[in-house]
């Protein structure tokens, strides 16, 4: 295990895992719900980070792929009465396959063209979900809670363990993936795809693989979301969410393994602070605005944060974290 080199590393990892797995003891149901959602978002963001951060294929349709996973799992468990684990796996596979289909243009185009293709993917997927009879259309559908072998994950803490368990696995997988041959191929493609091709990296294979893995993660996240939230409507997977996922990995730091964690924590906690503290305060004080205006505060802040991070700290919070680690390591003789 070369990820953990020293005893301090091991100690920190064990401490973090212990804190993580005892969280339900300190947190109430509301914050447990928030952390469940953070876990789900983190899985999706990790997938997008592999696709965009490591392989350099910008995807602005991630919410669409999450929706594919969510609805696949929901349809399998309600209409075919399959067990949850089958639904989870099929959700990942289905999203991965759809991802490959919409990733096909990436063989020929990149940059802005690919961004547009993924936007188109988002709208086509959401149209199908909105209109197809099996998905319940705009009314949405009700999904059973997750259950494994007769045990139903109904209470907050049990859901937390399920989601955090899978999240830890996914993050661990992603962290290891980038140290393998595949991960190095992804990075080579991101840095210069022509050079990578000349050196013998099979562009078609690896780009589509990146789409598959990224969307597989999205599908897993979608399935967990479906069985955690138990109601699904198409509005939960909007285009703005897709933008938010891109924002998350930028704020965290593109192409770093800790980036998505920081990004997701930052965005979700910012949202909580805004909805709990700022929005009611504004609704109270600024009465001259028409009612309902304060729901615009959250997207405004998100957009502002994304723009400011790009201008002021384009390498994201992960870069700050590395600076902090370096100064800690070199202290007190940092020169």
């Amino acid at each position: 295990m070369a990820i953990l080199r020293t005893r301090t590393h091991w100690g920190l990892l064990i401490a973090i895992l212990v804190i993580l797995f005892t969280t339900p003891l300190y947190l109430g149901n509301y914050w447990l719900g928030v952390f469940n959602f953070i876990g789900i978002t983190l899985i999706a963001a990790t997938g997008l980070n592999i696709l965009t951060g490591y392989c350099g294929q910008l995807s602005i349709g991630h919410a669409g792929f999450i929706a594919v996973g969510a609805y696949t799992s929901a349809i399998l468990t309600t209409r075919f009465e399959m067990p949850f684990l089958v639904g989870l796996l099929c959700a990942g596979l289905m999203a991965g396959i759809i991802g490959i289909i919409f990733g096909l243009p990436s063989i020929r185009v990149k940059g802005f063209y690919l961004a547009i293709t993924t936007i188109a993917a988002q709208f086509i997927i959401m149209w199908v979900i909105n209109q197809w009879g099996w998905t319940g259309g705009q009314l949405g559908m009700t999904v059973p809670f997750a259950s494994i072998g007769g045990y139903v994950f109904r209470s907050g803490p049990s859901q937390f363990y399920l989601i955090i368990g899978i999240t830890v696995l996914c993050v661990f997988f992603a962290k290891n993936l980038v140290r393998t041959k595949v991960g190095r191929a992804f990075i080579a493609i991101r840095d210069n795809d022509l050079a990578a091709e000349v050196m013998g990296v099979n562009l078609t294979y690896y780009k589509l693989l990146a789409f598959f893995i990224g969307c597989f993660f999205a599908g897993i996240a979608g399935s967990l979301f479906a069985h955690w939230n138990i109601t699904l409507t198409p509005e939960q997977f909007s285009f703005t969410d897709s933008i938010l996922y891109v924002g998350i990995i930028i704020i965290g730091g593109l192409g770093t393994s800790v980036g998505p964690i920081f990004g997701v924590l930052f965005i979700r906690l910012l949202k909580e602070i805004l909805t709990i503290n700022v929005v009611p305060f504004l609704e109270d004080k600024l009465t001259m605005f028409p009612s309902g205006f304060a729901s615009g505060v959250t997207p405004m802040m998100f957009g502002l944060v994304i723009v400011l991070f790009l201008i002021l700290e384009p390498r994201g919070l992960a870069h700050r974290w590395n600076l902090f680690k370096a100064s800690y390591r070199l202290w007190p003789f940092s020169y």
């Binding site: 924002g247 930028i250 309902g292 205006f293 615009g296 802040m301 957009g303």
Partner: peptide, 18 residues
């Protein structure tokens, strides 16, 4: 690309706000 997406996000919030 991301910065224009961020601007779009901001404007969308601003629209809801006003």
């Amino acid at each position: 690309i991301a910065v224009t997406l961020g601007i779009g996000y901001f404007l969308e919030g601003l629209i809801t706000f006003i």
